[in-house]
């Protein structure tokens, strides 16, 4: 469940085998991480099985109160759906879920201030793949 504190946010990561799922729309499981932005630490991680059809995943995540999504590949139509729901997005990230979250907390300029524009995310795609988490 999302934390009511304004310093806590809920981040969703599509996953498989404890790694970031290669495609948002094909994920059958999401890691939901409650993150304390002030203390820069992850308070809680849970997993949710996802049996939603691809076009319903964004609204399904919204029902959990998700603030942001970190993922690898994501179709542009789903980027727009998240944007319309006010959920920020960082795409192009692959690797182990825990490492991805640690990395995110360390460099958390990834779209936590406001919903980033889609082109802005593209650079993170390059950066994160270069790091190969």
């Amino acid at each position: 469940m999302p934390d009511s504190s304004s310093h806590n946010i809920l981040i969703a990561i599509p996953s498989y085998n404890q790694r970031v799922s290669p495609r948002f729309d094909q994920a059958r499981e999401f890691h939901l991480a409650t993150v304390d932005l002030r203390q820069q630490r992850c308070l809680q991680i849970s997993t949710q099985d996802c049996s939603q059809p691809p076009d319903k995943i964004c609204t399904w995540l919204n029902r959990f109160g998700v603030h942001g999504v970190i993922c690898s590949g994501i179709h542009q139509k789903h980027q727009l759906q998240l944007h319309e729901l006010g959920i920020w997005l960082t795409w192009g990230i692959s690797g182990d879920i825990k490492q991805v979250l640690d990395h995110w907390l360390e460099h958390k300029q990834w779209g936590t201030e406001s919903t980033p524009l889609i082109p802005d995310n593209a650079r993170w795609h390059a950066t994160c793949n270069d790091y190969s988490l």
Binding site: R19, P22, R23, D25, Q26, S72
Partner: peptide, 8 residues
């Protein structure tokens, strides 16, 4: 993670 198909 590289080919990211709909059937992976």
């Amino acid at each position: 993670e590289i080919f990211r198909t709909n059937v992976c």
